[in-house]
Design a protein around this nucleic acid. Structure first.
Lengths: 208, 208
DNA sequence: GAGTTTTGTGAGGACATGCTCATATAACTC
DNA sequence: GAGTTATATGAGCATGTCCTCACAAAACTC
């Protein structure tokens, strides 16, 4: 009886770090997790390797992150928050500009964001992600981007705003997936074309 | 002696079906594989489930496909061949048309292709794919698309032809990733925007 | 130092999955 | 029917991975 929890179905509550050492451990674990997730992908990443790379034992890892999925979730949520503030930064900085200028800032911001967080796509695309949560997150991001587009010097027709936001998202994903293109010349050429294409499209929709 | 192979290190040569029953089995196994791969993704798909869904035993499955990866590869290569003939079809049918018309045909062809092969993206994105092979496949596809663009009524400047082909390829990948978007309205809206955007861009480059 | 809390450890349990193999059955040839 | 080849079967092996647990060592409080 009793063993470790009193109420029912409280499977494995994570231990929240209280001391400095604990917080440093958690930071190291998150960092190692990000590395391994980005190198191997979510499924192929192993908890053993993550612990080893953080210089910790598996037991330590599991005290703070009782589940592989919870570790991924913690990282993912932190990244989403970063993403959101990056978008907010673009908004404050480029509000009132032309749509093309906004697109440039967005491109730059997102490329920088992803360059610093190579695990992002692996976490965003993992299969055991909560479906409803995924839907909500996507909706929130599209809404924020739509807000960006609306703060442009010459706003978009409401009817197409949502779709434009979704297109921007998709194009950003392409720009990112290009970062694994080995031929640097081609990578730059394609990123250039994508940027031009998006700016031209935004323009044409505004004019229409 | 002899059993089935003579030389050394021939780890598990696949058995090629000789009789009608064997060919039917292989067909059923491929079909079941496509189903499970598309539902669960490559890594989470299990050989046991594939065999069961094909109405075969695991042993049977492993006689024709000695490895999970070989099963995926067989499916993937068949799909790539289909894709290539689809592109060839577009070329024969739309050669001499405007770039916009070509883009429309391309989009239609690709959407139809994907609708019939829901496992394609799971197979194309699996991690244990051969890297050199991947590079070759990409190069071949870009070349074929460049040929398409060149057969247009008003061809592209040579300097940008390669980049344009790469852009088209990337946009096709977006369309692929969009096929998993659940909200059908949004999926259609985004596909519409992508189509318009590509057509506009092709146009502007031709004119320039 | 005694007592308490937090953090650390790693062997091993439980389980899933890719794959093998000895053996059986069907189909085809003569 | 005898002989041969192709196909079928599924128990079980090998392996890898998530996670647990009993206990140890710090670190902090008094």
């Amino acid at each position: 009886m009793s063993s470790q929890n009193s109420s029912e179905t409280v499977d494995a509550a994570p231990r929240i770090p209280q001391r400095k050492r604990g917080r440093e451990r958690v930071a190291a674990l998150l960092k190692a997790g990000a590395e391994v997730f980005s190198e191997k992908g979510y499924e192929a990443a192993t908890m053993t390797e993550i612990a080893a790379r953080a210089g910790a034992s598996i037991g330590s890892l599991y005290q703070f992150f009782p589940t592989k999925e919870l570790l991924a979730k913690a990282l993912h949520e932190a990244y989403l928050a970063d993403l959101s503030s990056m978008l907010e930064g673009v908004r404050q900085e480029a509000s009132g500009q032309s749509a093309a200028g906004m697109a440039d800032r967005l491109f730059d911001g997102l490329l920088a964001f992803l360059a610093e967080r190579p695990a992002f796509s692996a976490l965003a695309e993992r299969r055991d992600i909560d479906k409803e949560q995924k839907r909500k997150t996507g909706a929130a991001m599209r809404e924020q981007i739509a807000g960006l587009l609306a703060s442009t010097s010459q706003p978009f027709p409401k009817a197409r705003r949502e779709a434009m936001a979704a297109v921007v998202l998709q194009l950003m994903k392409v720009a990112v997936s290009l970062s694994s293109e080995e031929d640097a010349d081609r990578r730059r050429a394609v990123q250039f074309e994508l940027r031009q294409m998006l700016k031209g499209h935004l323009n044409s929709v505004q004019v229409a």
